[in-house]
Design a protein around this nucleic acid. Structure first.
Lengths: 217, 217
DNA sequence: CGTACTTTTGAATCGCATCAAATCTGGTGG
DNA sequence: CCACCAGATTTGATGCGATTCAAAAGTACG
C-alpha cells in the first residue's frame, strides 16, 4: 500500500462519487491517498482501527476464509466506504484486500469522528449510508436463505437490478461466492435457466425474462 | 395493536434495556405504548413509515415470505429497536409481526429525527447501534454462506455465544429458519453432532464442545 | 381433554458440492 | 506477433447432504 502523492482532484471526484460528496473540507485536508496492487492486503483481522477507508477507484473487499480455504465475501466496495461499521470498534473483525489495483483515501478515525460530531450534513449522510448498508445486508441474508441456485439468481436480479436487468460488474466466479454457491453450480444454473427461457444473458447484462428485444413483427 | 394506557415505568425499563437507555426525555414524552397479540401484524410492506418501534417485551420479527410460503426471518428483536434502517425511508420493505404477545413503544418519526439532530449522546448511541447491526448482519451472511448445517451451527455458537456456549432463546424451528435450514435438517445435524461428541445440549444451552462439566476425577 | 404447534424420526428424491479436466481469455514476455 | 501462463469459464461424473413429504410422539395452553 504505497502513499500516493499526486493529490486527487476533489471536484472531479465529487461529481461521480456519492459517498465522497459527503466528506467535509476539514476531513479532506487530513486525508491520505494510497494505491494498492491487485490482491494486496489493506488490513487484517485484529489490526487496530486507525483510519476510515474510502475506495476511489478499483475494488476493495472484506473477506473471511472458511475452514476449507474458501473465500467468503462480506463486503464489496467499488467507489464508497469499506468497513464503515468498524469505525466504532477497536480492531477489525475481518480482512480487507484489493481485488484489483485500487486507490483509497484514508481518514484518521479521530478526525472522522470529530467531523461526524460537528458537521450535521455529513452526519445525516453517514447515517443514511449505514441504514442503506443495513437494508442491503438484509436483502443479502434473504437471498442466502433461498434454497435453490435459480431462486438466488432471480432474487439478485430483482433486488440489485432494475426492471429485471442487472449489469454484472464482477466475474461470475466471485458472483458465485456472493450468492453462496460454487462457481460450477452458478454456471449450471445460468445454463439451465437460459435453456428454460427464464433468463437471457448478454455478456455482462443479465435479464430475468426471456429476451424479447428486436422482435418487432 | 391496542393502545396501552398504563404508562411504562421508565426507570425500571432503563435498568434492563440498553436500547431504551438512549432515549432522551423529549422523545419519551411523545412515545405511545401498544401491546399486540401473538402473530399480530405490526406493519406491512409498503406501509408509510410513521414511527420508530422499540420492543419492550415479547418479540417482534421482520419477515418476508418466499414463493413457497416459507418464512424468511430478516430481523428478530427481543427488547430493542426493530427496522431501524427504515427510519430514513418512506415505506417499509418488509412485514413486521409479533412472534408472541408483545409491547412496543412507538415514536413519531419527525420527533425521532429531531432528537437525533439535537441530542449528541442519543445520536452517538444510535450510530453505534446501526454499526452493531451491520456487523451482526455481516456475521449472518458469513454463516449463511457456509454449505453444511453443522458448520452453520458451529458458527452460530461461536459468534452469538460466549466461550462455546449459546443460550437459545427461541424454538429450534425458528432457529432453523434463522440458519437458512429446514427444521428437519437442523434436528438431524444436532443429533449427528451430539453422537459425534462435537456438541452437547442441555435444554436451551448449546455447547460446541463435548460436555466435560461435573467430571472432577 | 383437546387442539395446535413443536420436536423427532423415516424414506425417497433432488440439487449442490466436489473432483477432474478441457477450453477460453487476457495479459506478459520473448 | 506469437508462445505462454494464470485465471476464468465450461462441461462431465459421482456422492453426499439437504429438501421434501409423511407421520408419530411430545408439549403447551385454554
Amino acid at each position: 500500500m504505497t502513499p500516493d502523492n499526486s493529490p486527487l482532484e476533489w471536484p472531479k471526484l465529487v461529481a461521480s462519487q456519492t459517498s465522497a460528496e459527503l466528506i467535509p473540507k476539514t476531513l479532506r485536508v487530513v486525508a491520505k491517498q494510497v494505491t494498492t496492487d491487485s490482491c494486496e492486503t489493506i488490513f487484517r483481522v485484529g489490526d487496530p482501527v486507525h483510519h476510515a477507508y474510502l475506495v476511489i477507484s478499483g475494488e476493495a473487499r472484506l473477506i473471511r476464509l472458511d475452514r476449507n480455504g474458501g473465500e467468503i465475501i462480506l463486503q464489496r466496495s467499488r467507489g464508497g466506504f469499506i468497513a464503515e461499521a468498524s469505525l466504532d470498534t477497536r480492531a477489525y473483525h475481518c480482512d480487507a484486500v484489493a481485488a484489483k489495483p485500487t486507490t483509497l483515501l484514508l481518514f484518521p478515525v479521530a478526525a472522522f469522528r470529530a467531523a461526524l460530531e460537528e458537521d450535521a450534513s455529513f452526519r445525516r449522510g453517514w447515517q443514511s449510508l449505514l441504514a442503506r448498508e443495513v437494508r442491503k445486508l438484509r436483502a443479502q441474508c434473504e437471498r442466502l436463505s433461498l434454497h435453490s441456485a435459480a431462486d438466488r439468481i432471480t432474487h439478485y436480479i430483482e433486488s440489485e437490478g432494475r426492471n429485471g436487468v442487472v449489469e454484472l460488474n464482477q466475474s461470475r466466479k466471485s458472483w458465485a461466492a456472493e450468492l453462496g454457491l460454487t462457481h460450477e453450480a452458478l454456471y449450471r444454473a445460468l445454463r439451465r435457466m437460459q435453456d428454460e427461457g427464464t433468463l437471457h444473458i448478454d455478456s455482462n447484462r443479465i435479464f430475468s425474462r426471456p429476451y424479447a428485444g428486436d422482435v418487432d413483427s
